[in-house]
Design a protein around this nucleic acid. Sequence first.
DNA 1: CTGGGGACGGGGCCC
DNA 2: CGGGCCCCGTCCCCA
Length: 259
Amino acid sequence: MPRSFLVKKYFAKQKPNYSELEYQNDTSLETYPLAELPSADNSTSTCFTTGLVWDLSVLPALYLPTAHSEASGTSGPLDLSSPCSLSSSASSSGEEDEGRSSDPPSPEPVIKYAPRQRMKCTGVMAHVSPPEEEEERGETPAMAARPAFLCKHCPKEYTSLGALKMHIRSHTLPCVCTTCGKAFSRPWLLRGHIRTHTGERPFSCPHCNRAFADRSNLRAHLQTHAEVKKYQCGVCSRTFSRMSLLQKHSSSGCCSTLG
DNA sequence: CTGGGGACGGGGCCC
DNA sequence: CGGGCCCCGTCCCCA
C-alpha cells in the first residue's frame, strides 16, 4: 500500500455541501462513526513501536534554538517546517508514515516567506510582480524564466496554477462557519472547525479512552504513549513528544555544551 | 517550567 | 483542474 493514509474516511464521497453540513451539524455529524481509528493500517500506531526519534544534534546548526526567534517572528520557529529537512532523514530510518516516506525528496529547500503565523485575510495589498521587477529584486533571468504563478495578495509564488489557486483560498477564505462566522481556506478545515462546535471527536486513541477531533492531535497524543518519543535530545538522549518540547529542553541548558 | 491538548494552516498526492 | 484527504508542523492555552 503505497499511501496508507489515503484511506477513505467518514466523509469520503459525502456530498460536498458544507453549508448544508453546517445547518445539520449536530444531528448529521452524529451519524458518522465515532471513535474509529484507522489503526488497521497502523499509519499512526507504528510510531509506537518504531524507534524513530528526531535528534537535534544531527540537525544543522541553524536548527538549534538560539534566541527564541519564534517569539520575535523575525525568522520563524526554525525552518523545520520545511518538509524536506526532517522528513527525509526520518523516513530513511523506516518511520511511521510510510506513505509520506514515498514522497520524493524536495530538490531544493523550500524557503519560507514568513514565520508561521496565523494567516488571516487582512485585505493585504495586491501585488503582482512583472518580470522586470523580479530582475530589480535581484532575481536572475533563469529564475524569472521558470513558470511562476504569483499570488496577488502576498509574495508567494507557485509553479502551478492549481497550487496558486489553492493558496489564494487562504486569502479569500471562502469556507465560512455559519455558527461563528469564522472563515477557512478549505472545506475540510471548516469541517474540522465545526467539530469544535459539535464536539465530535472521530479520532480515538487505541491506548486510552481519549478522543480527538483532529487527527494531528491524535498523532501528537500517541507520542505521549510511546516509550521512545519522536524527538530525542542528542546530549541526554531524553525523548520528547514534540519538537517544540525538545527545542525548549535544548535551549534550557541541556545542550548548552554544544555551544 | 514542562507536558499536553486544541485549533489551525500549508503543501503534496490521488481521484 | 478541482475536490478531497493526508501528513507535517505551528501557535496558543492550560494543568
